[in-house]
């Protein structure tokens, strides 16, 4: 173990070197308003083709959903927006979204971010801010 430690330390040091970028917000790193719009459009396109979770969106109005989701992502990523939609619990109550389907949505979001060439660490930062919402979304 002692002999393995240096390798591990080198990895950590290399990683921490990447940590200090400019004072960009997560919103900026996601490409600003245009970037988020592209990500959300990509996500909606994927949901439209997804047999597993499309049914949850049957009663949703796409234009309204797009607008609110962009606003929500923007606000959550420290962008200059205010989310004015309903809270997560109100929106999802009665939908009985499962753990599996919530993760499916994240998979599709990751695909949409990959399509926009969002760097892996930036993707994780957004996911980290969305993850705490799960408790207000699933099985209600």
């Amino acid at each position: 173990m002692i002999r393995l430690m240096p390798i591990w330390m080198v990895i950590l040091v290399l990683l921490s070197g990447c940590a200090h970028n400019q004072q960009q917000t997560l919103f900026d790193k996601l490409g600003g308003h245009d970037g988020l719009t592209n990500i959300v459009n990509g996500l909606i396109e994927q949901i439209g083709k997804d047999k597993q979770i499309l049914h949850y969106f049957r009663d949703a109005r796409v234009s309204r959903f797009r607008e609110h989701l962009i606003d929500h992502f923007c606000a959550i990523a420290d962008g200059p927006c205010q989310y004015t939609g309903d809270n997560m619990t109100d929106i999802h109550t009665g939908m009985k979204i499962t753990e599996k389907d919530f993760n499916r949505l994240l998979d599709l979001l990751i695909n949409a971010m990959d399509q926009q060439n969002i760097p892996h660490p930036v993707q994780n930062k957004l996911l980290a801010r969305l993850a705490p919402l799960r408790t207000y979304i699933i099985y209600i």
Binding site: L12, G17, H120, P121, V122, N124, K125, L127, A128
Partner: peptide, 10 residues
Amino acid sequence: LHLGAIAGYN
């Protein structure tokens, strides 16, 4: 698993 915890890596 901590999302994005170390320089954005999980």
